[in-house]
Each structure stands twice: as C-alpha cells, then as structure tokens.
Computed example of a mutant assay.
Amino acid sequence: MSQRDLAQDDPLADFTALHMTIEGVEKRVWVAGDGLGVIVMAEMPGISPHVARFARWVRDAGFRVYMPSLFGRDGAVADAESGAETFRRACISAEFRALGGGTSSPVARWLMGLARLAHDECGGAGVGAVGMCFTGNFALTMMLEPAVRAPVLCQPSLPLDNPAGIEIAPDELAAVARRMELEDLNALGLRFAGDPFCRAERFAAYRAALGDRFTARVVPDDAANPATPSFFARHVPAPHSVVTVHLVDEAGSPTLAARDEILAFLRAQLGPNA
C-alpha cells in the first residue's frame, strides 16, 4: 500500500461509495477489496485518513471491507472545532446511546443488517466487525446477528459516564455470551493502559461477562504516536486510538503488532477462506 499524507483529506478514491437502505434507513458505505467481509466502523469524529488507512490494511490482507458512514465528513481531517461538533451531535442523536450503559445503540440494528448483506455477497462462514472508540462496542452487539463471527473492540468508549459500564443490554450480552460458547467464538479487545475513555474497569466487565472468550490486549502508553491531528491534540490528549491516530507505523512497534493481531484474529475466526 502506497504511503498517503495523513494530514490531508483522503478522497477515498480506491473505495466504491454505495448507498445502502436497511430497515428503511439509507447510509453511505465505502467498499473495497475481495474476500470475506469485514465491517470497519470509524472512531469519532468519522472516517479520517487514519481510519481509511486501517481499512486498507484489512483490504490488503485479503478481505472485502465495508466502511459505513455513521458521523462526520468522510475522508476529512477534522479540526478541533468541527470534530467536537460532530461528537456533540452524535451524543444527542437517537441512533446512539452515549451515556448510562446497559442498553444498545439503535444503530447496531442497522449494522447487523449490513453484516447480513456483506455475508450474502461474500459468502464464507461469516463476517468480521471492527469497532473503534464510539463504535467499539457495536462489534459485540452485532454478534446477535449470526452472520457476524469475529468481533474486534478497539478502545470501546461507551458509556462515557460509567468506566465499568458496557453499552449493551444485559439480556443481549447474555445471548452473545451463550452464542460464543456454543459456537467456540471469541472477542478481541484492545486499549492503551492509561486510556481515560476506555479504562481497565471496562475490560474487567467484558471479562466477567464473557470469561475466556474475551481476549484483552493492553498496549503501553509509551508506544503511542505523540503526533496527532488537532481534534485529538485538544480533546483526546492521552493515548487512545490503538490502530489509527496513535499507531506507530514502524517495524517492532507494539501498535503495529496490535494491527497484525487483529488481522490474524479475523483470519482465524472467519475460517480457512480468510
């Protein structure tokens, strides 16, 4: 994959923009690659060049990537002000449940429908789902859809007001846990050690609910890239985004190793065709 300037807006020219209507709601989905399907959900404040870089890594690993536009301006390097406004709008949107915990965001249902479409198109045993930050726990909720077999939770940050909370209804979490045990499936979670938005208490809650089916990877804070766009510099000053903004793209980097673990996890969970 050729190097791109991550400080400049990304035109996403190597993706195809599709408008998909699921349960009466239309959203734009950026699609690229061939192979088994993987849903890549952007972190706040949207599909940035860093998020697109990660999606390309997944594509180049042999998967067909589906990257839905859930908030923000697609491909943009959001400045501190516009990124904060995107965050505020998402927090009050009926599609998301940013506060409280113990309930699932309504948009997860739309994402389950996207997973079904991706599975129908790509075949195989199922699809993967990678959530980040605001969308991190969506990957777990999507396990209520049988097509989803490989959930990756990168620094899941909701609910914002309860470090030990999980953004999923208790009965749904129990159903996911039962399915993972019956089908011998696992979930992978990643976070930085000192992340104030995804603290150790949250991963402990996942472990309590899912047991050994939840694999936690905690990356040391000193492995984070200190050079970040203005939105992160002002609003997310601590290490947070393991495989996007705070990733160090150098051999031997713990964050690059985290990316490679995600790709290996997707291959293992989705079967021999991955």
Rank of each mutant, 00 (worst) to 15 (best):
V152H: 05
V242F: 12
D222E: 14
L185K: 09
V40A: 13
G72R: 08
V243R: 04
R4S: 12
A118N: 02
A257C: 02
R116P: 00
R202S: 05
L270I: 02
C133A: 12
V29R: 01
A224H: 11
E183D: 15
R149Q: 09
M143P: 05
A76M: 12
S93V: 04
V236E: 13
L70H: 03
P170Y: 03
M67S: 01
V176C: 13
V65R: 03
G136N: 07
D60S: 09
V77E: 06
V243Q: 07
F87K: 11
D34S: 13
G252I: 09
A98Q: 06
C154S: 15
V152C: 07
A224I: 07
A55Y: 13
G102A: 10
V127L: 05
G123A: 00
T244G: 03
D9E: 07
G136C: 06
C122F: 08
R28T: 14
V218P: 11
D195Q: 11
L266K: 04
G271D: 07
Q8D: 00
R149H: 04
S230Y: 01
A224M: 11
G189C: 12
A216F: 01
G75Y: 05
A84N: 15
L12W: 10
A147P: 08
D212C: 00
P239C: 05
I166W: 05
V176F: 06
L188T: 05
L247H: 10
L12V: 07
T16D: 11
S82N: 14
P196F: 08
V152Q: 03
S69R: 09
E95Y: 08
A205L: 03
N162G: 00
G37A: 09
L12Q: 11
R207N: 01
A90Q: 14
L114E: 04
T21C: 11
P159R: 13
N225W: 04
P156R: 09
L266G: 07
S93T: 04
G46W: 10
A84I: 07
V219C: 06
C154I: 15
T103C: 08
H119F: 02
C133D: 15
S230I: 00
P170W: 02
S230V: 02
L99Q: 11
E172R: 06
P68I: 02
P272W: 11
G123P: 01
A78W: 12
A204I: 00
L263E: 05
